[in-house]
Each structure stands twice: as C-alpha cells, then as structure tokens.
Amino acid sequence: MIEHDPEHAELAAITAVIPSFSDHRVLEIGCGDGRLTRHYASRAAAVTAVDPDQQAITECRAAVHGSHFVAYAIGFEEFQAPAHSYDVIILSWSL
C-alpha cells in the first residue's frame, strides 16, 4: 500500500497560509480521492470538491462525510457556481 505524505507536509504548508478553515466556504479543484479534503472538511462551513475522475470522486465521497460536503465528477471548465461563492479555492495539483 502506498503511503502518501505521512509527514503531513502538504497540510502543514496549507495551515501556514490558512490557519483556520472555520466558517469558510471552500471549493477544491482536483480533489482526487479526498486525500487533502478529509483533513479540513470537518472544520469548513461548506465544501465543494470537483475532479473529472469519477472513480476518484467515488473514493472522495467515501472519505469525506457531512451534509455540508458535495463532490462532482466534472472538470473545472464545466463547473458552474454563482460569483463570489467561496472564501477559499484550492487548486489541488490541478493547474
């Protein structure tokens, strides 16, 4: 089994720029299987996660729980949302 970032370097780097996700509405683009999402989702007010990989989205939905969380198997170019909907947008290895 492959272990991804057991040092939590990615989470530490994000925490350094956003100390708290509390009350934030977050859009994560390129969420994959929710490796990063699961670490902050419980603290955010709302989380929308998108990724074009259907299998990854299925795994992300299994990893992240809560009525404040939605995930869509679409690319960012297809994603639609009203202007000014998010306090934080994460481009998660997706550029």
Binding site: I18, I29, E77, V88, L91
Partner: peptide, 21 residues
C-alpha cells in the same frame, strides 16, 4: 483562463491556494 475564473468565484476577501509540483 481558469485562474481568472477562480477570481470570479472568490469572495472579495477570499484566498486562492495553488499547489503544484
């Protein structure tokens, strides 16, 4: 183009986090 779209979706005080190798 994608980066410009993110600025439209962000609140005025919102923050965009980019992670890439």
């Amino acid at each position: 183009h994608a980066l410009r779209r993110t600025t439209e979706l962000l609140t005025p005080d919102g923050v965009l986090i980019d992670l890439h190798p």
